Simulated assay, not measured.
Amino acid sequence: MTSDVYRPSPPAQVGGEATGDRWTLVFVRDLRHPPEKVWRALTEPGQLSAWAPYTAGRDLSETGDVTLTMIDDENPLDMAAEVVRAEPPTLLEHTFGTDLLRWELAATGGGTRLTLRHTVQDRDMLPKAAAGWHICLDVAEKLLDGRPIPPIRGAAAVDFGWSELNDRYARRLGVPDTGLPRHLEDGNGTA
């Protein structure tokens, strides 16, 4: 069903930066929708659950503690998180397990340039994160277009081009392609 209506879009602009003893994926994507609409997709729990690998226990438009629930497989996992910065509709920064997500939104003549900075522990996670966010943001764009498709998360993403995207992003980032993340190889689907 979803495979009939979804094919990955062309790869996004990506980069990788050393951030102390961690690494930051810089993922840039242009969306056809204004920042206010994209902001709601990033912050409202009902919209997050339609495209992201997690949902939130509350709207993410305000700083403070929040529970993010990983929903990328059949066993949801609650994670304590914190919204560090929320400046509607241009900047959202929150923890994601041990990672940090920084969503920057800039208006571009009716659309939005979204820059996601995803800070991870290990450099080999950069292409994996890029491939995952690529598919999630494809689904988000369909939601924003008013043509939603079911979310594509976790191990199911492999059936929708995740491996090919991971390989392409690994080459672009100069990072070895180490395949599936360990939690998906193990089959337990938890982060």
Rank of each mutant, 00 (worst) to 15 (best):
Met1Glu: 13
Val5Ala: 11
Arg7Gln: 13
Pro10Gly: 03
Pro11Val: 15
Pro11Leu: 12
Ala12Glu: 14
Gln13His: 14
Val14Met: 12
Gly15Gln: 05
Gly15Arg: 08
Glu17Cys: 13
Asp21Ala: 13
Arg22Ala: 15
Thr24Val: 08
Thr24Leu: 11
Thr24Met: 10
Leu25Thr: 12
Asp30Met: 08
Asp30Thr: 14
Leu31Gly: 02
Arg32Pro: 01
Arg32Asp: 13
His33Ala: 07
His33Val: 06
Pro35Ile: 03
Glu36Asp: 15
Glu36Tyr: 08
Val38Ala: 14
Val38Trp: 10
Arg40Ser: 12
Arg40Tyr: 07
Leu42Cys: 03
Thr43Gln: 01
Glu44Cys: 12
Pro45Glu: 01
Pro45Ser: 00
Pro45Phe: 04
Gly46Ser: 14
Leu48Asn: 05
Leu48Gly: 01
Ser49Phe: 06
Ser49Leu: 09
Ala50Arg: 15
Ala50Ile: 03
Ala52Asn: 04
Ala52Val: 04
Pro53Asn: 03
Ala56His: 04
Gly57Trp: 00
Arg58Lys: 04
Leu60Ile: 00
Ser61Glu: 01
Asp65Thr: 15
Asp65Tyr: 13
Val66Trp: 02
Val66His: 00
Thr67Arg: 09
Leu68Asp: 10
Glu74Arg: 11
Glu74Lys: 06
Pro76Lys: 04
Asp78Trp: 02
Met79Trp: 10
Ala80Thr: 11
Ala80Gln: 13
Ala81Lys: 09
Val83Lys: 01
Val84Glu: 08
Val84Phe: 05
Val84Asp: 06
Arg85Met: 15
Ala86Phe: 09
Pro88Tyr: 00
Pro88Asp: 00
Pro89Glu: 01
His94Ala: 01
Phe96Pro: 02
Thr98Ser: 12
Thr98Cys: 03
Asp99Ala: 14
Leu100Thr: 05
Leu100Met: 12
Leu101Phe: 10
Leu105Tyr: 05
Gly109Phe: 09
Thr112Pro: 12
Thr115Val: 14
Leu116His: 01
Arg123Tyr: 14
Leu126Asn: 09
Pro127Gln: 00
Lys128Tyr: 08
Ala130His: 05
Ala130Lys: 10
Ala131His: 09
Gly132Ile: 13
Trp133Arg: 14
Ile135Cys: 03
Ile135Lys: 00
Cys136Pro: 04
Cys136Gly: 04
Leu137Cys: 07
Leu137Phe: 07
Val139Gln: 02
Arg147Thr: 08
Pro148Lys: 04
Ile149Pro: 09
Pro151Phe: 03
Pro151Asn: 03
Ile152Met: 00
Arg153Ala: 10
Ala155Val: 11
Ala155Gln: 07
Ala155His: 07
Val158Ser: 03
Val158Arg: 11
Phe160Gly: 00
Phe160Pro: 00
Phe160Asn: 00
Gly161Glu: 01
Ser163Thr: 11
Ser163Gly: 11
Ser163Asn: 15
Glu164Ser: 11
Leu165His: 01
Asn166His: 10
Arg168Pro: 02
Arg168Ile: 04
Arg171Lys: 13
Arg171Asn: 08
Arg171Tyr: 06
Arg172Ile: 07
Asp177Met: 14
Asp177Lys: 10
Asp177Gly: 06
Asp177Val: 07
Thr178Pro: 06
Leu180Arg: 14
Leu180Cys: 10
Leu180Asp: 01
Arg182Asp: 15
His183Ile: 09
His183Thr: 10
His183Glu: 12
Leu184Trp: 12
Leu184Met: 12
Glu185Met: 14
Gly187Pro: 07
Asn188Arg: 10
Gly189Ile: 10
Thr190Lys: 13
